[in-house]
């Protein structure tokens, strides 16, 4: 089976000569259609740089990215851009404060020419309803919504474009735990209902455990481990992965035990 989205020997460097930084270093990974692949690592590990290359925000230094077997060019066409959509971390800064929520969602439809102009408000409202917001919200401004509602709008905006892949860059780390749980459930349901493919970027492994099919762990621009979610948590291979798991705040005794065993293994 060929992967929906894949990268081969992807490199990205910033700066020159002495200040040269390898932000992403020789990364090859495959994302299958309909799966949720999590990209995990601490700040500065290259997660967001990878996402920006997948989205075509800036070109890679070397290596290639393919979608459905076709190589993606450095300058993306509308078709390419529509196929991969983004949900950012902070919905307050990713939504235009001067635009109503509905206008933000509709903008993608206008740019990509989805549906007839007369139908586009209807599509916008349907997208809002799909993420659990009333259709009447389309006239509101982002400042009149709560953090969780704003993030739902950002998700609706990505959905309305009927994209194949959604890149979620820390979609819940600006939200409190209760709102996070609701948004994660929504994302999970949408993926199943619509057959979406997610690239889920986060530093929170407890979220990953419950939403991802596979996990790729990044450290300093290098992919150090990539495996099934279950296997990664039960038998992490790399010491960096173990230290990441050991840093997660936990509430139950069973989790404490798992953390303690991992801590013992890494001290051996």
């Amino acid at each position: 089976m060929t992967a929906l989205l894949s990268t081969r020997n992807l490199h990205k460097t910033f700066g020159k000569k002495r200040s040269l930084v390898h932000a992403v270093n020789n990364v090859s990974l495959d994302v299958q259609a309909g799966e949720c692949l999590a990209i995990v690592g601490e700040s500065g590990s290259g997660k967001t740089t990878l996402a920006n290359m997948l989205l075509g925000v800036y070109p890679q230094t070397s290596g290639e990215i393919t979608l459905d077997g076709q190589q993606l060019p450095a300058r993306r066409t509308l078709v390419h851009r529509r196929a991969i959509q983004l949900v950012q971390q902070n919905p307050l800064s990713s939504l235009n404060p001067r635009r109503s929520v509905g206008a933000s969602v509709r903008l993608g439809l206008d740019v990509y020419g989805i549906g007839k102009p007369s139908e586009r408000w209807r599509i916008t409202e349907a997208a809002l309803e799909e993420v659990g917001l009333p259709a009447a919200f389309r006239k509101r401004s982002p400042s009149a919504l709560s953090g969780g509602q704003r993030q739902r709008v950002a998700i609706a905006r990505a959905l309305a474009c009927q994209s194949r892949v959604v890149v979620l860059d820390e979609p819940t780390s600006a939200l409190d735990v209760l709102v996070q749980a609701r948004v994660l459930r929504l994302l999970d349901r949408l993926r199943r209902d619509k057959g979406l493919t997610y690239v889920f970027i986060t530093h929170d492994l407890s979220v990953v455990r419950n939403i991802a099919d596979r996990v790729a762990v990044f450290n300093a621009g290098v992919m150090v481990e990539c495996s099934d979610t279950r296997r990664l948590f039960e038998a992490p291979q790399h010491s960096y992965t173990r230290s990441l798991i050991a840093a997660v705040p936990v509430v139950t005794e069973a989790e404490m035990q798992l953390r303690n065993t991992l801590a013992e293994e890494s001290s051996k």
């Binding site: 749980a181 609701r182 455990r209 948590f233 509430v251 798992l258």
Partner: peptide, 17 residues
Amino acid sequence: ALMAAVPRITGGGIADI
């Protein structure tokens, strides 16, 4: 509810709150 909302590293899905 607040306790259930914290995702578990032992898995078990996301709570419906």
